[in-house]
Amino acid sequence: MSFIVRKASEEDTLPIQHFIAKTGVGKLPATVEWSSFLIAENEQGDFVSVIRIQKVTDDTGLLRTLIIDSDKVNSLFILEFLEATIHYALEEGLSNIYLLAAGEGTFLQPLGFAKTPADHLPGELTSLEDVQKHLSKGLPVFMKS
C-alpha cells in the first residue's frame, strides 16, 4: 500500500479536526497554523496520519500532535512518516528538532533521536506551557542529533 505525504492547506482544517476527533485525542490549541501540519493519505485519499511541526525559533522545531490511524498503517509506516517529517523540517531550516514522548521512545533512536535532559533544552522550548507540564510529569524529551 502506498501513501502520499503532503503539507496541509487551509482546506484541510475541517478534515484534520475530524481526524483528530475520530482518534479520541485531546483538543488542539485555539489558534493553530494549519499549514504546520503534514498529512499522510492512503490511495483512497483517507487520512492515515497527521503531525504538526511547531516552529519555536528560526532553527528550532517541535514535532507534536502525531496522530496515527493504527487500523490503516503498520509500524514501518510510522518510521517512514517520521523520516519524511524530519526531512521536511530540515528543508524548512529547522536544524534542532525536538519531540515530546510519553515513554522511552526506543523506536526514535534509529531516526537519530536521543533523550535530552531538561537542563539541556533551550529556554524557548521550556517556556512553552505544555512543555513545562510534560517535564513536570517526568516525561522525556528527545532531540534529533
Rank of each mutant, 00 (worst) to 15 (best):
7 K>T: 15
10 E>W: 08
10 E>L: 15
11 E>I: 10
12 D>F: 10
12 D>E: 04
15 P>R: 11
15 P>H: 09
15 P>D: 04
16 I>D: 01
18 H>A: 07
18 H>G: 00
18 H>C: 03
18 H>R: 13
18 H>M: 04
19 F>T: 02
19 F>W: 02
22 K>F: 14
23 T>R: 14
23 T>A: 14
26 G>Y: 14
26 G>L: 14
28 L>S: 02
30 A>S: 09
30 A>R: 05
31 T>D: 13
32 V>A: 05
32 V>T: 11
33 E>N: 13
35 S>E: 15
36 S>C: 00
38 L>H: 12
38 L>C: 11
38 L>S: 11
39 I>S: 08
39 I>D: 05
39 I>A: 08
39 I>K: 10
39 I>G: 08
41 E>C: 03
41 E>G: 00
42 N>R: 12
42 N>E: 10
45 G>E: 10
45 G>H: 13
46 D>E: 15
48 V>R: 00
48 V>Y: 00
49 S>I: 02
49 S>V: 02
52 R>H: 14
52 R>L: 12
53 I>S: 14
53 I>F: 09
56 V>F: 11
57 T>F: 06
58 D>Q: 12
59 D>V: 12
60 T>E: 08
63 L>M: 13
64 R>D: 01
64 R>V: 03
65 T>E: 11
66 L>V: 12
72 K>T: 01
74 N>S: 13
75 S>H: 07
77 F>T: 00
77 F>Q: 00
78 I>R: 07
79 L>K: 08
80 E>H: 11
